[in-house]
Design a protein around this nucleic acid. Structure first.
Lengths: 256, 256
DNA sequence: CGTCCCCTTGAATGAAGTCAATACGCGTGG
DNA sequence: CCACGCGTATTGACTTCATTCAAGGGGACG
């Protein structure tokens, strides 16, 4: 998807775009990111696990192309998604401190992932303080998103939860330049959504119809359109502060 | 509470106890932790905010004594707790990267907190790699807890959610040496619990009665007893793996 | 052309919320 | 010492939201 491979876009391109919502990177920083992203690439089909609970963590991964999710299963088969990975996302930089993974990561679409060795990452954090700061920011935003999901699941109604999630995903895609006007890709099944917002698939279906009938979303095939973003935002009590997208690290900006 | 002030226990004592569930610290490490915990202490009464949404983050905090929580409010007054802070907990080591807090932190009991300057923290991470690793571990566990709350809120029933939370808190207190046999302090109101597990206070009350009537908990005043931990664990689908308490960093152990 | 996966719909059931009244415990001030 | 007030816990009756079960429809793909 997105045609990266074809267009020859730099591997770290999405990562760079995302980090630049925090601080402007130098040409040298960008080269460094391209270097660490240059490792072996792994391709997965939808539903394949990239990492499985119980695995011994070894490398860090950079998502190049496609969507993935973190999930956890209960003994009796209930499944909860705990985050989405979009192009340019990293999975946690320090996992190798732990001896076993406590969750799994799976592809939701055809997926391309770059493996990044511990050493490559160490090299960059030692020599590129601006990147290090930006990666820290990224980690903090990831944690904020996780907290916001807690708030959603705990306090928002099913209707608000769905709307909130769509606002969040749209905004994350927008940061990456992966939206066009009021439209983006949404390669999820209703069942994926159900396991994300903690509703049954049937009820997700009905709730989506509610959102549609109120003109807040148009979702057909894999394209989502949000005709009136502020309206969806208001209906979902979505406040984008937690995404910290306002170049909060601008005092670190490179000047080249 | 817990009488720290009176007994003259080292300020970093609970932090040390917690980190030693990851790796054994040297006497020098412990002295270093005591030094960073030596900063100014702030005392709060229950319900006071330590940090308020919108604040500019400045210092890092180490919780010395008492319970606190992170919480978020929706515009219409709904409140969700997103984590608990127990003695020896840190609030996120890198917040000062962000320009504004996206959530608040409040005292649940009388609370004592040490302010730790950015510089003091930097000094320790530069000169004490073992501590740095241990703090990283701590951050990863915090994130894992946050994910587990997401799973609870999304998939577990109200009954399971409450049981799960009590298992988790008991185990965290146990790590700190703050349990005695099958009993610990639980200085929360049913309303606090409600805002944590995403149920109404009324329903928390009924669910607690259910747990009581099945003999899984005894909760009177501020003392919680779990007569049969494995039973509560099973009833709540609680799997402690995510707490990573098995000294996973033992290869870093100090040998003094 | 059939199969599989996903989406959609209806009807019945169950879980949890709301509202409202009451009870309890504890500290304060008269 | 007792009365009062306040925050917290408890209970009942009713409503709303969401799940479950079951059946049918549509589209992609071999």
């Amino acid at each position: 998807m997105n045609g990266n491979a074809a267009s020859g876009i730099g591997r770290a391109e999405y990562l760079v775009r995302r980090l630049e919502h925090f601080t402007r990177l130098s040409a040298d920083d960008k080269r460094a990111l391209d270097r660490i992203a240059a490792g072996p690439v792994q391709s997965l089909r939808p539903r394949d696990d990239l990492i499985h609970e119980g695995d011994r963590p070894e490398d860090v991964h950079l998502f190049l192309d496609g969507w993935a999710c973190r999930y956890e299963m209960l003994e009796d088969g209930r499944r909860q998604l705990t985050s989405f990975f979009l192009p340019g996302d990293f999975c946690d930089m320090n996992v190798f401190i732990l001896s076993r993974m406590d969750h799994s990561i799976a592809a939701l679409t055809p997926l391309r992932v770059a493996r990044i060795s511990r050493e490559a990452l160490q090299e960059i954090t030692l020599n590129h303080p601006r990147i290090t700061q930006a990666l820290w920011w990224s980690t903090l935003v990831t944690q904020a998103i996780q907290r916001e999901w807690t708030v959603s699941l705990g306090q928002r109604t099913g209707y608000e939860r769905l709307g909130h999630l769509l606002c969040e995903l749209f905004m994350r895609l927008w940061m990456l330049g992966l939206t066009k006007d009021d439209t983006c890709e949404l390669p999820l099944t209703q069942s994926d959504l159900a396991d994300t917002v903690g509703l049954s698939a049937v009820h997700v279906n009905r709730t989506l119809q509610e959102l549609r009938s109120r003109g807040l979303i148009v979702w057909k095939g894999r394209r989502l359109t949000i005709p009136d973003y502020p309206a969806l935002q208001a209906a979902s009590l979505f406040n984008p502060n937690y995404l910290h997208m306002n170049r909060e690290g601008r005092h670190l900006d490179a000047n080249d």
